Simulated assay, not measured.
Amino acid sequence: MLNLQAVHHIAIICSDYQKSKHFYTEILGFKIDREVLREERRSYKLDLSLNGQYCIELFSFPNPPARPSRPEACGLRHIAFQVSNIESAFQELEMKGISPEPIRVDEFTGKKFTFFGDPDDLPIELYEI
């Protein structure tokens, strides 16, 4: 048994570093822990945390290839974040120019959720807890 304890981080490669940096920090509210320019790779690495917990490594690379994400492509499907009030989060996204899908209800848990995309259309879910 590996005895896994928790998810350590999610790594995301973006096509437009400044746009994605703005999205994850100013729209979603992640805190920048460290930003490094790796000159030899012409690549940025941005470490982001949420409520004091390290969560996302945001990378930029010159001309990254596109990755199919919809409909139901094989591989990582989406990332999800929990919220306490889905309606409030939905309205805040709309005020910031993000258009989430209509709020749905999980047929097994009865909990509300919605999806929207990051600047590269990576599917992100908000799930009400």
Rank of each mutant, 00 (worst) to 15 (best):
Y24Q: 01
L126C: 01
P68D: 15
L122H: 13
R41Q: 15
H22G: 10
N3W: 08
S84Y: 01
R104K: 14
F30V: 01
G29L: 02
S20V: 03
Q82S: 15
R70N: 10
L58E: 01
L122A: 05
M95S: 14
G97Y: 03
S43G: 07
E107T: 10
A66H: 09
F30K: 01
S99L: 10
P68M: 07
L76R: 11
K111Y: 06
M95L: 13
L48A: 02
K111H: 13
A89D: 05
P119R: 06
V105S: 11
R77Q: 12
K31H: 14
S60L: 00
M95C: 09
L58H: 01
D118K: 08
P71C: 04
D16E: 15
P64G: 09
D106V: 01
N3A: 14
A11P: 02
F108G: 02
L76M: 14
N63E: 14
Q91N: 15
P64M: 11
P64R: 08
C74T: 09
F115L: 06
G110Y: 04
L50S: 05
I10W: 13
E87V: 09
L4R: 06
E39D: 04
G117V: 05
L2P: 12
E72S: 11
F23P: 07
L4F: 12
V36N: 06
I98G: 06
P119N: 11
M95K: 14
E128H: 02
A11R: 06
F23W: 06
E35L: 12
P62Q: 07
R77P: 02
A11C: 04
K111C: 05
L4Y: 09
S84N: 07
L2H: 12
Y54L: 00
E107V: 07
K45E: 14
L2R: 06
N85E: 07
F61D: 05
Q18P: 08
A6N: 13
I32M: 11
E87M: 04
L28W: 09
F115K: 05
T114F: 12
G97I: 06
L122P: 10
H78Q: 12
I79E: 07
I98L: 07
H8M: 02
C14H: 01
I13H: 12
E94M: 03
M1N: 15
V105F: 06
D120E: 15
S84K: 06
E57G: 02
S15W: 04
S84H: 10
N51Y: 08
S15L: 09
K112A: 03
L76P: 11
D106I: 07
N63V: 04
G75H: 05
C55P: 00
T114E: 02
E94C: 10
I10D: 08
Y44D: 05
D16R: 14
R41Y: 15
H78L: 02
G29E: 04
K21R: 15
L46Q: 01
I103S: 03
G52W: 00
S60I: 03
N63R: 07
S60Q: 02
D16P: 10
I124L: 13
L76T: 12
Y44W: 12
P64N: 08
E92G: 02
E35C: 05
E87F: 09
L50M: 08
I27G: 07
C14R: 00
D121T: 11
S69F: 14
E57Q: 10
F115H: 05
Q82P: 11
L48W: 01
G75T: 03
D16H: 14
E40G: 15
E107I: 07
I124D: 01
L76F: 15
V83A: 02
